[in-house]
Nucleic acid binder design. Structure first.
Lengths: 226, 226
DNA sequence: CTCATATCGATACACTGTATTGGCGGATTA
DNA sequence: TAATCCGCCAATACAGTGTATCGATATGAG
């Protein structure tokens, strides 16, 4: 046995904490999606055994909660908004941007009540921007309605973005698998309105689609706040 | 060896087809959520080995797609709507009802582009109700905006419903685990608007919350279609 | 009746989240 | 200082997952 194949010493790893664990998990998810996050892989990134993590985390779901709240930190407004509308609009666009950076966010958004400190701070920012504009119930409805639109729109956008990426990697697989299926369906004549839309509809840019829908919803909110 | 412990003959199972497989999977998911759906358990319900399913299904994800489209069958309108507004409203409420019956639907809705026959038919119904009301782009935006609200609102409602159910089973676990955490957060004074809402806000009935937000969005759509 | 073929399902594999337990280090006490 | 004990950490273990592989079996042809 020479020095070369002598095993390295256990490499006494840096002491762990939640932040480092969450950061590793986020990095993993950014690279390979949520399903690439396994406790074993997270631990491996930190030169630790899998069970080590259970000193800081009770369950994998809790790790997901922490990841989500971590990203809510990126969504916090840097400065207070001028008015309620800009607050809601800003929140929406920041959330969308974060979801484009961390596509796995679409899988988590709205999936469970989020009570982390950053999520609370984000909600607080919206609520305070609406404070006094209307009664409490209306304010709450406004926030919830906008959030619902947000969540849904982002989810759909990420979903089709993924479909594109997947088919980009193996385009003709998709063409052969689903393309003809859908085309055949449309050709049956059972879906005339849909066929017309696919045939004549213009491809819409996702960002303006999102923004347009958002403004519609904001208009609706404005009408109710008045 | 007596007749009693003689193993039963292989029980030659009924021949499989996609419908039976999907039905078994849906039943499983209704009982225990999406995570209770494993190919082994689905196969067991049909007196088959796990690999038997691969003759009818390429992958587990495909099974989920089929389950989703199966439920879209419950969402199809029974008769054509009188006008576009009723079409969209009806679609929304039917989707919500289906999600209450099959809570796992919340995990799938909007998660991937849905191209099954029932989903296409549902979309067709909405589009045809809007046909001629405005130009194609606007119609598409209307459908997408309402769908986005739908998806998000249902997701949130099911999420909090699950939280309630989970805490119902072990109430003081939740009280001890998260209750004080949130209370402490609010007590820090860093979230005044949030605290006021929690303190003074009235508990809103989910159904009317959903309906109210929906009407807001429909109002917005109406304003743009005009 | 024999043989070829093709289909089906049992076995196998790599991987998951987590419970259990054995061993090791450091702190505490005689 | 020496010995003991306690607490923590991680290796092993387990039950389960989705799916690839491949051998047996059943079917059809000659």
């Amino acid at each position: 046995m020479t020095v070369w194949d002598r095993p390295e010493p256990p490499a006494r790893p840096v002491p762990l904490d939640r932040e480092r664990i969450v950061a590793a998990a986020v990095a993993l998810a950014d690279e390979g999606g949520l399903e690439a996050v396994s406790l074993r892989k997270v631990a491996a990134r930190l030169d630790a055994g899998p069970m080590r993590l259970y000193g800081y985390i009770a369950t994998k779901e809790e790790l997901f909660d922490l990841m989500l709240d971590e990203v809510y930190g990126e969504i916090l407004p840097e400065e207070p908004a001028r008015d309620w509308r800009e607050a809601l609009r800003g929140h929406a666009h920041r959330t969308r941007q974060a979801s484009l950076r961390h596509q796995w966010l679409a899988d988590l958004l709205g999936g469970r009540p989020t009570l982390g400190p950053n999520a609370l701070a984000v909600t607080e920012a919206m609520l305070s921007a609406l404070d006094g504009v209307a009664d409490l119930d209306t304010v709450m409805r406004a926030v919830e309605t906008v959030s619902a639109y947000l969540t849904g729109a982002i989810r759909r956008e990420i979903a089709s973005l993924r479909a594109e990426q997947a088919t980009g990697l193996s385009e003709r697989d998709w063409q052969r698998a689903h393309g003809p299926h859908v085309s055949r369906m449309l050709a049956t004549g059972r879906f005339p309105a849909l066929a017309k839309l696919v045939h004549d509809g213009t491809e819409l840019d996702p960002e303006t689609t999102f923004a347009t829908g958002l403004e519609w919803v904001l208009d609706a909110v404005a009408a109710k706040l008045a």
